[in-house]
């Protein structure tokens, strides 16, 4: 074990750093598997009801603006890039670019949420939120589509919020520990999470915004 590694924190339950790193990495991947199962339930509902109400789906998706969705896709993809660059900076042990890229990621995530806010508020104004006030009560397919839209994007948005919190925390940690040799594993694991959130959106965008006959 080199003198460098001695500075890194080793949990009392572990024998060495390798064991610690591998444990955290496996743990993160298992967590992502649970996330896949979690979203999987909703995607199943999506598939079933899309098959049941093809018309409602086509009508429903006209309430969504593909340009705003596309903008958000662009924002999230860029944030995945900045996250990857932050991980690379962490591996090279350069704290300044790391902090810079992490801050960019957080700002982009906020950007995503702001676009989402405008999208949501428009739908509330136009009464295309499921419930007694829904504007197209005659078309259950549309209402289900909007219900799933809110459930899926709401859950995804919640994951973006969690991402903002976690990435901010890791940014502060990086700044506080800038004089020490740092462990890049936390950044890498947060990065994995963030890419997952991105990938979910990559599925959501075409499934919700880009429906054609």
């Amino acid at each position: 074990m080199s003198a460098h590694e001695q500075e890194l924190h080793l949990g009392h339950q572990f024998e060495d750093l390798k064991q610690q790193i591998e444990s955290y990495t496996i743990g993160m991947w298992i967590f992502l598997v649970t996330e896949v199962m979690f979203f999987g339930g909703l995607f199943t509902a999506y598939i079933i009801y899309r098959a049941k109400f093809p018309e409602g789906w086509v009508h429903g998706h006209h309430h969504l603006d593909w340009r705003l969705g596309g903008l958000n896709t662009l924002i999230l993809l860029t944030s995945s890039l900045t996250m990857a660059l932050a991980v690379r900076a962490a591996m090279l042990n350069k704290w300044k670019p790391q902090v810079l890229f992490l801050v960019c990621t957080v700002l982009l995530a906020f950007g995503f949420m702001i676009v989402k806010y405008f999208e949501y508020s428009k739908k509330f104004r136009e009464h295309i939120v499921p419930g007694p006030l829904f504007a197209h009560k005659d078309d259950p397919g549309q209402e289900l589509f909007m219900g799933l839209y809110f459930a899926l994007t709401g859950l995804h948005g919640f994951h973006v919020l969690i991402g903002i919190l976690v990435i901010s925390a890791i940014t502060i940690r990086t700044i506080n520990m800038r004089r020490m040799r740092q462990d890049f594993i936390p950044v890498e694991l947060v990065g994995l999470y963030w890419h997952f959130v991105d990938i979910v959106w990559i599925f959501l965008y075409p499934l919700l915004y880009l429906i054609s006959k």
């Binding site: 649970t34 996330e35 199962m37 979690f38 979203f39 999987g40 339930g41 909703l42 509902a45 009801y49 499921p130 419930g131 007694p132 259950p140 209402e143 289900l144 909007m146 219900g147 799933l148 809110f150 459930a151």
Partner: peptide, 21 residues
């Protein structure tokens, strides 16, 4: 377990927000 989580989540959502699933 994540599947029961999302299932009961939808039940709750149905009850509170009437999304109709």
């Amino acid at each position: 377990t994540p599947v029961i989580a999302i299932t009961v989540f939808l039940v709750g959502l149905e009850k509170v927000a009437h999304i109709g699933i």
